[in-house]
Nucleic acid binder design. Sequence first.
DNA 1: CGCAACATGTAAGCGGTTACATGATTAC
DNA 2: GTAATCATGTAACCGCTTACATGTTGCG
Lengths: 182, 182
Amino acid sequence: MDVKTVCLGMLSDGEASGYDLKKQFQSTFAHFFAAGYGSIYPALSALAKEGLVACREVAQDGKPDRKVYRITDAGLAHFRETLKNPDTSHKVRSGFLATMVFAHLMSPEQIDAVIQSRLADIDRDLELIRQFENTCSANSTPGMRYVCGCGKTMMHAMKKYIAENRGGLVECDHRERTASGI
Amino acid sequence: MDVKTVCLGMLSDGEASGYDLKKQFQSTFAHFFAAGYGSIYPALSALAKEGLVACREVAQDGKPDRKVYRITDAGLAHFRETLKNPDTSHKVRSGFLATMVFAHLMSPEQIDAVIQSRLADIDRDLELIRQFENTCSANSTPGMRYVCGCGKTMMHAMKKYIAENRGGLVECDHRERTASGI
DNA sequence: CGCAACATGTAAGCGGTTACATGATTAC
DNA sequence: GTAATCATGTAACCGCTTACATGTTGCG
C-alpha cells in the first residue's frame, strides 16, 4: 500500500486538497502511515493523469488556488479492485528498540533519556487520536474507529511495558557493568 | 538507526559473518528492524573500509569462504559515541491498518481474510521470539530480553484487539452496506 | 516583529528492496 | 529430483524524505 493508493482511498471518503490529505496523514494516520508533501502532491498528479481522480481549481484571495480532488467512478472501481488483493503487511522500524538492545553499553541516565523521549512521542500520537475522536468520531467510518482503537491499544500496551520494565533494564545493566569493573 | 549501525552493534556482541547477521535480522530483530543481504553486505564492506570492523577470511571446503567480521576498538568507540545521540524513533508502516480503514468497501469475507493473514504473520513473529528464548536466552543481554519482551507484549496486544473487535468491523460494515442497499 | 497556518509544487538524494549471478552439500 | 542451507556479492530500481522555492493572512 503506497502513498498514492492511500490518497485514492482517502478521496473515496470525500473531496479534498493535497493540503487536507497531509493533515489527515498527520492526525489519524500518523501512528501507522506517514507521508509528506513530497509524496502526496506527485501522487495526486499521477492519479489525475490516470483519470482516477478529477481536479477542480478553487480561486482564493491572498492564498494560492486550492486544487480540490474528487474520486471518479473509475477511481472508486480501481480502489475496490485494489482491496481485493489487500496489503496485510505491518512493518515496524524501531530505532528505539534497536537502541535498547545495546542498553548494556549505555549509562542509566542515557537509557532513561531514551525512554522519556519514546514516552513523549507516544503521548503525542495518543493526543492526536483523542483529538480526532472528540471532533470527528460521529461521522467517521467503522474502519477509522477500528484503526484508531488499535493504535490506542498498541500505544497503551507499549507505555505499560516501558513503565513496568525499566528496572530490569537499568538495574541489570548497572549490575553487569559494575561486575565487569567498568 | 540504519542497517550499517545495527550491524556494528551486533558485532559488538561477538564476531559474525554477513550470513550470520542476516539470520539475526530474521529472528530476534524481525519484529522491529528488517534488513536483507542487499543492505547487510555493502554495510559490512563500508564498515571495514572505515576501520570500524576487521575481516578474517575462513576457507571452507565445498562452500564459499566465510568472511568473519570482528569489531575493532575504534568501532566500539564509534558505536558508543553513536549511542550518546540515540535514535528514539519508532515507525509503523501498516498496510493492514491502511486496508482496514476502508473496511466499509470490502465484504465480510475479504475482511476476514485480511485478519487471518495478519494473525498468521503475528504468530510467525511470536514463534521466532519463542525459539530464541528457548535456545539463547541464558547468554543474551538484558537489552535483548527487554526488546523481545516488548515485541511479545505488542503482538499479544494486537492479537487481543483483533480478536475482540472483529465484530464491530464486520457487522457494522454489513449493516451499513445493507442500509445503503448495496 | 515573528511565527504559524494556508497552499502548491520540484528536484536531488538516500536508503533499502528485489532480482540476478554462482555453486556445492545435505536432507527429504 | 528438488528444495533448503550455506555463502557472497552487485546493480537496477523504487519510493520516500528533505530541502528548496514562493507568497499572503492573521494572531500574539
